[in-house]
């Protein structure tokens, strides 16, 4: 399943509290779809230039995106912190 919600959190120093931003992936993809097509075309051209199989690259990238849900990065240092959670 493709990621549905990406949560980005951060906390600044000085006793600040956690701030979180929830990004719904599908609506954002729909909004960015006009840019997505040229990006995919650019990627395919880059594949041909660098002698990489475009089908393999597309399949690999898809597999990577499909495997993203469940990923979580949480780093805190003192009062500061950053969090990325993919669901």
């Amino acid at each position: 399943m493709i990621p549905q919600l990406v949560t980005i959190g951060w906390r600044r120093g000085g006793g600040g509290r956690w701030r979180r931003m929830h990004v719904p992936v599908l609506p954002v993809l729909v909004v960015l779809s006009p840019l997505l097509l040229p990006a995919v075309l650019g990627g395919l051209i880059a594949c041909l230039v660098f002698d990489v199989s475009p089908a393999g690259a597309l399949r690999g990238a898809g597999r990577l995106v499909w495997a993203l849900p469940g990923t979580r990065f949480e780093i805190e240092q003192g009062d500061m912190g950053v969090l990325v959670n993919v669901r």
């Binding site: 495997a67 993203l68 990923t71 979580r72 990065f73 949480e74 780093i75 805190e76 240092q77 003192g78």
Partner: peptide, 10 residues
């Protein structure tokens, strides 16, 4: 100076 890293990768 305390730090905490929590990473979960499928």
């Amino acid at each position: 100076g305390s730090a905490r890293i929590n990473i979960r990768v499928p």
